[in-house]
Each structure stands twice: as structure tokens, then as C-alpha cells.
């Protein structure tokens, strides 16, 4: 029978690289990423899973790293904005964000990019309504959203 643990070893794939770390159960994923691995592109804002600034992809699916415990990544793949942006395949989406002025202060942008990537992976040619519905859990307080919708559309198969 398993004993309750107060520290856990986690081995996982971080931005394509196998890594290991030791975490406490209460450590949220965002702290592991920012403090242990120095990946500060992931931002903490609302801390209640509403805003999406802390979005990372866990096995390709967006999650709120502010709340998901770090131990959940055991044996799984985590993609942060740093890993996403370093890959060539990110360039159409990144350039579309540049061309459409789809970012301003940049605090929501890492999460926004990852949510958009996850959408385009699932649906390469989403309609405007699908973009809005999929992204509705990511808040941007600067742009007014229109330019982000346009950027995601431009980066999709429909927009090329």
C-alpha cells in the first residue's frame, strides 16, 4: 500500500527535452516552470483558471499551470511558450500576431499563442465563431480581441 508523500520525483518532457525534478505536492506547475526551470514566459495573473495567462500545453492540451499541480506532469509532455516559439512550425502564428497587432502589453500573449496553437492543431481551418468559442477562456485586456481573431485566422489554412 502506497504511503502519502511530501515530496515527489517528477520526470517529464519539457519543450522536447527529458527532465527531472523534485516537487512538493502543493507546488503548482507554474512554479516548477518559472522557478526551477527559469521559464518565465508563463505568466500568473488571475490564479483562478479564468484568464489563461498561465496556459501551457500538457500532452498538447491547454491547462492552467497556476492550478494544475506540478506532479501531474509525470511521464507527460509539457510545452511552454519558449518551446513553442523555438520551433519553426510556430512561425506562421507568430508572424500573424505581428502582422495583425495581436498583442500589446504581451502578458496574455504566451497563453494566447499556446491556445491558438492547440486550436489550429485540432482544427486547421476554424471559422471565426469557432476561434472565439475555443479562445473564450483566454483573456486579453489590451487588444479588444478582434486583432487576435484576425491573426489566428491568418495563420489558419483558411487564411493563407
Amino acid at each position: 500500500m502506497a504511503e502519502a508523500q511530501d515530496t515527489l520525483a517528477v520526470a517529464f518532457e519539457l519543450n522536447g527535452v527529458p527532465v527531472e525534478a523534485s516537487v512538493e505536492p502543493q507546488t503548482p506547475l507554474i512554479d516548477l516552470l518559472r522557478e526551477r526551470f527559469g521559464l518565465t514566459g508563463t505568466k500568473r495573473s488571475c490564479d483562478v483558471q479564468v484568464c489563461g495567462a498561465c496556459t501551457v500545453l500538457l500532452d498538447g492540451a491547454p491547462v492552467s499551470s497556476c492550478t494544475v499541480p506540478a506532479f501531474e506532469v509525470r511521464g507527460r509532455a509539457v510545452l511552454t511558450v519558449e518551446g513553442f516559439a523555438a520551433d519553426e512550425s510556430a512561425s506562421p502564428l507568430i508572424e500573424a500576431f505581428v502582422n495583425n497587432a495581436a498583442f500589446q502589453c504581451g502578458f496574455c500573449t504566451p497563453g494566447m499563442l499556446l491556445a491558438a496553437k492547440s486550436l489550429l492543431d485540432a482544427d486547421p481551418a476554424p471559422s471565426e465563431d469557432v476561434i472565439k468559442d475555443y479562445m473564450r477562456g483566454n483573456v486579453c485586456r489590451c487588444t479588444g480581441y478582434k486583432k487576435i481573431v484576425e491573426a489566428v485566422h491568418e495563420a489558419s489554412e483558411a487564411g493563407r
Binding site: 500500500m1 502506497a2 502519502a4 508523500q5 511530501d6 515527489l8 502543493q26 503548482p28
Partner: peptide, 19 residues
């Protein structure tokens, strides 16, 4: 958040008795 320990049972019975 206040620290807590993590129990990872492998059967429902184990979870119930831990609870």
C-alpha cells in the same frame, strides 16, 4: 497554499480506507 501530502492509491479500496 498550505503544504499537503499526496496519497496515491492503486485500488478503490485503498482510497476508501485512506479516506
Amino acid at each position: 497554499m498550505r503544504p499537503f501530502r499526496l496519497h496515491e492509491p492503486t485500488t478503490v479500496q485503498e482510497a476508501a480506507s485512506a479516506l
